[in-house]
Design a protein around this nucleic acid. Structure first.
Lengths: 353, 353
DNA sequence: CATCGCCACTGTATCGTTACAGATTTTGTC
DNA sequence: GACAAAATCTGTAACGATACAGTGGCGATG
């Protein structure tokens, strides 16, 4: 007789049309399954020539490890989970984000799984699910809060992750963030350069970390460039466009009306413009406005609004690189990045003329 | 001695903090692993009381089947793959689509995996990958062509799928589509109602199926409502905004300038508007325009443009339901749907005043 | 009372992979 | 030449689930 029992496998030809497995390679090379497995991972106890032979055959027949097999045996899922609020939909920042992430994952064995949740409910839900079921090797979250229970939980349980946005908990973890402080500061600079002195900020919801970043930049700008703040806290960029417009129309009609506006979101800017116009005023004339934008639309449709571009696709790429780095054990402090606002030249009505 | 070898498992207490498996339940109930497995799938050869007991315990300890185990043994992945072009990014239709899909998947064991590809390269790539590796139970594709090789391949290989858009190959398969013919027809109606007679269509790329749908509706409208077409085929909605604008500016400056425009995409409309304005004309005055839109932005920023809403989130939901139906073996002809354009009332500048 | 059939349940093998503990051969040492 | 140490390679078991082929008990049948 030949081999004993299980690895006798190598002596049996693999079924025909089926997808190749280690067994197939073992049969073709005459080696044991174990050897093939170890050869493919370049283990030190396999001969150089054997490795070469195995690699060649594997490539030839298009071997790809069975994910379920690996996952069952090792627990490695090769999955990155993108945790999204279903509501995170305004102005669709999700698309470029997903594209950015997949651009990076394309060169790796990782797949991207989208895990949604209703933000009105338990934000820990999806995290718990991933922890309980071992659904992913790494997680990307957004809408980060200064004290974010998700970060605490994932850190405790050693689940690699990265946040889109920073925290303030003394936990060093991977993140990518847009420099919202800088954005607001530069926005104020732009407005004061145009002689605006009574400025208002359409801010992020107060529970998110970048709320304070943006406020800080705004206020630092006011001080440095000599302007005053007009209070406008009833609504924030999470509110509906209608709510923002109505609130802002009211403000613009009041004696307190600002002459300069910083908008923390592109879609918010749309509502603000509507509010301004409802109040019978005009952007670029009665007021100036700077908005953070994730795309070109505002610039095309309302060139009178000054825009600072936030590259979400880049963010996706950075986030993907960071989670993978975290999974691979790189120190978290090397996996942090901040991207700078890009002030956009106003679009000329007709560049060719 | 007790049980023989493998199922002796049931006699061994499960490790402490670990996630519960069938073994855990088997131990707790004193049953065999097989019995537990069959009880949970409501097999006919298990006693009613036993099933009840098993279900209770399973629920109590929060048992969730190990996906890798199931997948390895049965081949069922519980994965739906959304195949996207990386370029499909203009105007971010991906976001609401993903949201719609996940809304449906949330109530099922399915996960959503995003599989991107570079449309300039081989569109069959991701399909082949899924077929070769058994990466998903079902697939959602878009940018459907009249003779779409992906549809042929998946049909041949019995991989359940659904297309966003229709085909013309005589293959009956699940799809969801927006009624682009109706859209264009109604758009022409609107324009002629305003007295416009020289109409132009910014159309989809000619290789996609809905190109002809939209053209057909457009031409039928021209005939029924008495208007003539202005030729404009140099660019389509897949081209860059700059290309569209420049081409359209030229058209608007020519003696052939149209007085009515149908735009097959929201972002395209933005470029058209820019082109019109570069040529020194004005929408709502010199020309009227109807555009298909996936969001509210255009309506907010350019209320003079008439818009017809395409509900992408709904499309996501329909697509998800259809793939799942296909996976479950429902006949394809019952998994086809067409959504109608929703003409939107122009936004009043200030509804409260 | 032997036998049959049915019900309810169980053991074994298996999916593809890898950790681990050998096994065999070659090389090195004195 | 004997023995140890490398150097290579291999079998077994296990991850968690399920298909399949039983097994044992019990009531019905003749």
């Amino acid at each position: 007789m030949d081999g004993k029992t299980k690895n006798r496998a190598a002596a049996v030809p693999p079924p025909d049309g089926a997808r190749p497995t280690l067994k197939t390679i073992a049969f073709m090379t005459g080696l044991g399954i174990t050897t093939v497995s170890r050869a493919l991972k370049d283990a030190p106890d396999i001969g150089a020539e054997t490795k070469e032979r195995v690699r060649l055959v594997a490539k030839q027949i298009g071997y790809q490890p069975n994910r379920a097999g690996v996952r069952l045996r090792t627990g490695k899922t090769n999955v990155i989970s993108l945790v999204l609020t279903l509501e995170e939909e305004i102005m669709g920042i999700t698309s470029p984000m997903v594209v950015g992430i997949t651009e990076i994952l394309a060169g790796t064995p990782y797949h991207l799984v989208v895990t949604p949740y209703s933000s009105t409910k338990d934000p820990l839900g999806p995290i718990r699910y991933i922890l309980d079921t071992g659904a992913a090797d790494g997680v990307i979250i957004s809408r980060t809060e200064p004290h974010d229970p998700r970060v605490t939980l994932m850190t405790e349980r050693h689940l690699p992750f990265v946040t889109h946005g920073r925290t303030e908990m003394g936990i060093v973890h991977p993140f990518h963030d847009f420099d919202n402080e800088r954005f607001a500061y530069e926005a104020v600079r732009r407005l004061t350069e145009r002689g605006r002195r009574r400025l208002v900020l359409l801010e992020p919801p107060p529970n998110l970390t970048f709320h304070s970043h943006m406020r800080t930049g705004f206020e630092r700008g006011l001080k440095d460039f000599g302007a005053e703040a007009v209070s406008f806290h009833h609504v924030n960029i999470d509110h509906s466009l209608v709510a923002i417009r109505d609130a802002f129309e009211q403000l613009m009609r009041s004696v307190d009306a600002p002459d300069g506006i910083v908008s923390g979101s592109g879609s918010g800017a749309i509502a603000l413009i509507a509010g301004i116009e409802s109040a019978g005023k005009k952007v670029g004339q009665d007021v100036d406005m700077v908005s953070k934008v994730p795309s070109d639309f505002l610039r095309w449709l309302r060139p009178e609004v000054m825009t600072m571009y936030e590259d979400i696709r880049l963010a996706g790429r950075e986030l993907a690189k960071a989670v993978i780095g975290h999974i691979e054990g790189k120190p978290p402090e090397t996996l942090q990045s901040l991207s700078q606002p890009e002030f956009q030249r106003p679009m000329s009505k007709s560049p060719k003329v």
